[in-house]
Design a protein around this nucleic acid. Sequence first.
DNA 1: TAAAAGTCTTAAACTAGTTCATTTTTTTTC
DNA 2: GAAAAAAAATGAACTAGTTTAAGACTTTTA
Lengths: 197, 197
Amino acid sequence: MEHKESHTLILNNIARFIDLTELEKQKYLSLLTEIKVKKKAFLMQAGDLTKYEYFIIKGCLKVYTLDEDGAPHISMFAVEDYWTGDMASFMTKKPTRYFIKATENSELLGISRANYDLLFQEIPKFEKFYRILYQKSLISYIQRSNHGISLTAEERYIQFKKKYPKIVNRITQKDLAGYIGITPEFMSKIITKVNKM
Amino acid sequence: MEHKESHTLILNNIARFIDLTELEKQKYLSLLTEIKVKKKAFLMQAGDLTKYEYFIIKGCLKVYTLDEDGAPHISMFAVEDYWTGDMASFMTKKPTRYFIKATENSELLGISRANYDLLFQEIPKFEKFYRILYQKSLISYIQRSNHGISLTAEERYIQFKKKYPKIVNRITQKDLAGYIGITPEFMSKIITKVNKM
DNA sequence: TAAAAGTCTTAAACTAGTTCATTTTTTTTC
DNA sequence: GAAAAAAAATGAACTAGTTTAAGACTTTTA
């Protein structure tokens, strides 16, 4: 059966780890909510209760916290075919400390907490999907947390370019600095230096 | 039914997220391997193929990599009731870049990759167990990777003491420095400073 | 399309964390 | 329980990254 483009995208993402029957696909899609968010608009702000976990169909968003001095620390950039949200807040139902802001006009599919719970009852195969999804995310966050404490800012920048070549060109240098964990001024120095190497 | 102490420990860990019948418990326990490792001995060294994922019954181990200069970067301390290993290498069946060394005489239960795969076939409920286990680990690694880039070494030390009060007293200052991501000399300075605050 | 707002660059003075070297204290080993 | 090995403390000289400030460039908005 033919699906609309956004549905094909998310079903392909899921098909990486589990096979669904046509009926299961329909059931799954019925649990999702379509969300559009314009450039510069917020999907989530600190203090909000986290309604959804999100899958990005189109666009780019930054996920960040603000420290006591008001400086942003970006924990991820979410683009097409990525999952994002604040899992801690989504699971505990406590207010989030994160902001999620679109850096481009974006289209997402969201799953609510109620539907997430329902999903496992109705299609237990999704336990496997999330088991593998979380396992892969875990591997990449373990590496990131090691790199954060063991590499210099310059090395982290080089790693980022290698790992996410397509994302580098879609974000500002300032936001990249917020992800690498340095000031925009020092980011500028690093880029100048690395580019002339 | 009565289980031996190490089995009670791991079954309680699993009972946090799923209920098993007595038969399932027996089946699960039959898939595990008992492992003992003496203080200063390695459970794993860079270059090894990762045979097991481990559950710690007793003792303490450090999981770390060595950088080009030979400096250790510790990614976790594993104590009683913790899970550890190198998930990336365990899943991909490629050699690990990690060392796991016992800092105390330790007893573990290991599950091999073959038995891990078998487990999901025989007791599909374990998909849920690992889904939740990985989800919780992910939440804590996301936080750690954010802290690594946004907090000062002193703040990371204070966080560590708050989060793992029992572990602080079981490890050397040098190893703690390797975890915080600083030199032992600077660790010494921070501790002196924080203790007189 | 002009003005406003935000981003990027550069530079000088500063601070957090490193390096290297030495001494003291604690732990391990025989 | 003495000797050896490892860990911890201290200090001086150094480097990676911050802060503040100002000017140039780019993007957004009316």
